[in-house]
Design a protein around this nucleic acid. Structure first.
Lengths: 195, 195
DNA sequence: TTGCCAACCGGAACCGGGTTCCGTATTGTT
DNA sequence: AACAATACGGAACCCGGTTCCGGTTGGCAA
């Protein structure tokens, strides 16, 4: 970890100062635009906000999806790390429930992120893969613990559960009649062992 | 109802024969293309397959979404009508479960339909509205019956449930690791009254 | 049959939105 | 001060939905 933002500890070959400055500006601009216009905001808007040409985005992030990953890396990381912490602090079942709630809160507060996670357009498989890689193992750990404690059925797959929860969060904003959290609760309730 | 395909009984003012022929061709072509390439197939493909110009599509269906509605109207109708029938033939809870399965099977077998149902792009709100109008009341009826029989919690909203189920079906094709049906079952299980 | 006009049609054109290209500007090093 | 290497901006390109326009055709009336 050297102040840059990549997960693998590659030795970054020292880039030019303006390059670093622009990358920073882009991440900030993207974060701001995502909050106001949603994750699906046009690339040009982000470039404009950062006071930068469009190509600069693609020079730093091979695709729109990678920019999104970069913007949310911290939070995904935090969520992943919260898993084991929760597991150490309560019963497995409660830990699982709280962790899922963390994930749901994260998704629901990022306009359009859940939808884009499931988009099958070229490039977004990277985004999907990143979330899966980082979060599914954590979920599996919580799931295993709860199953071992006999609190939930043992035939629930972590990947499937994460995808299901993610799907339930799609479009949870701009529709007051739809509360993703409630449905996720139902889903979790459905996992309890019968009796 | 005069042989055409609109739900409201407007007296269609007798169109020219080629117009009728082309509409037929378009519906057939669209159905075929949807099966092979999914619901998100380009409009141009459908026009080509029907041996027709793109504008002809828009002359018959104000937007892509309306074409999709027209193609699936029969099946949605059938699903809606199956609700009361099921209710008359078994216990409310079983009827609800089977009806939801019907709906899930419908969505899962139409590549991309569930996703497009949730797309917030302009024009697709019509599609969403149609599904809601036609199916939510049926679901509400089943839900009420099951709740009245004390088989499920009574705080589940029909609209919310339908949206949740629809969401769970997104991307259920081309991913063998994800089985929407299983998750829907969990969701339904979560609705049973505690105890 | 022929002629006429409204109804219809095909494809080119237009409008975003993501991605790439290319000539130019900046950095930092000697 | 001068020169590479590195970055940059914006125009250009591709693709998909939607609209426009000049030509065609179906059906009716003479």
């Amino acid at each position: 970890m050297n102040g840059s933002h990549e997960g693998t500890g590659q030795a970054a070959p020292r880039r030019r100062s303006d390059a670093r400055r622009n990358e920073r500006a882009l991440l900030d601009a993207a974060a701001a635009v995502f909050v106001t216009s949603g994750v699906e905001a046009p690339v040009r808007d982000i470039a404009a906000r950062a006071g930068v040409g469009v190509a600069t985005i693609y020079r730093h992030f091979p695709t729109r999806a990678e920019l999104i990953i970069a913007v949310y890396r911290h939070q995904v990381e935090a969520c992943a790390e919260a898993g084991p912490a929760l597991l150490a602090s309560t019963t497995p079942h409660a830990a699982l429930g709280r962790w899922i709630n963390l994930f749901v809160d994260f998704l629901v507060t990022k306009h359009g992120l859940a939808a884009v996670l499931r988009s099958d357009e070229a490039g977004f498989d990277t985004l999907h893969a990143y979330f899966v890689e980082r979060l599914v193992p954590v979920c599996a750990q919580l799931l295993d613990a709860a199953a071992a404690a006999g609190e939930i059925r043992s035939d629930v797959d972590a990947y499937e559960l994460m995808r299901g929860v993610g799907n339930l969060c799609i479009g949870a904003d701009h529709d007051p009649r739809y509360d993703a959290r409630r449905l996720v609760e139902l889903l979790i309730a459905g996992m309890r062992v019968p009796r």
